[in-house]
Each structure stands twice: as structure tokens, then as C-alpha cells.
Amino acid sequence: MNRAERRALLGDEMIEYIHRRVAEAPPPDAELIAALRPILTNPARRQRSEVGPEHSMPAAASGAVETE
């Protein structure tokens, strides 16, 4: 979704509200930034074991076909 599509969907008032709320939030601390940096800078290189089973795709969604 590009910027114009988001604006059409949300409207100017909602976007302004979101910007105000973000501006009110405190800045993240160094520990949070360090924890998020590997995820946000290169998410595709994360190992499946780092993601955990709660984020794995069900077999049906992954395109895997069960055979009998």
C-alpha cells in the first residue's frame, strides 16, 4: 500500500491524529533499539529457529501438500 492509498483509506484527520500520538510517545531506550535493529535491518536473514514456532506458517498456508 502506498502513501496515496493509505491517505485515501484513513483520511487526513486520522493521519494527523496518528502523527500527534507518535509525537507524544517517548523515544525508545538503547536496549529496545539494540533488540529491534537485527529484525528491522535485515528480517529475511533471520533463522527460522530465531522466529519461533508461534510465527511459523501452517502447512496449508505454506503450500505444502500432504500425501497419504
Rank of each mutant, 00 (worst) to 15 (best):
V22T: 01
P38L: 02
R37K: 13
T41N: 05
G11Y: 07
T41K: 01
P58W: 05
E50I: 05
E16R: 07
A60C: 14
A23G: 05
G52Q: 06
R20W: 09
E68D: 13
L32S: 14
H19R: 03
R48D: 07
P53S: 15
E13A: 12
P27G: 06
S62V: 02
L9S: 11
P43T: 01
E5A: 04
S62F: 06
Q47D: 14
E13D: 10
T41W: 01
E54T: 14
L9M: 15
H19Q: 06
I15R: 00
E24N: 03
V65R: 14
R37V: 07
M57I: 14
M1A: 06
I15D: 00
L10F: 10
A44P: 02
E54A: 10
P28D: 11
E54W: 05
D29A: 12
E5G: 07
L32N: 15
L32E: 15
R3T: 07
Q47T: 11
P53K: 15
D12H: 00
E50P: 01
P58F: 03
M14K: 05
R46A: 00
G11P: 02
I18R: 03
R21D: 03
P28G: 12
R37W: 15
P43N: 01
A25G: 10
P58V: 08
E16F: 00
A30K: 08
R37G: 12
P38H: 00
E5H: 09
L9W: 09
Y17Q: 02
L40E: 00
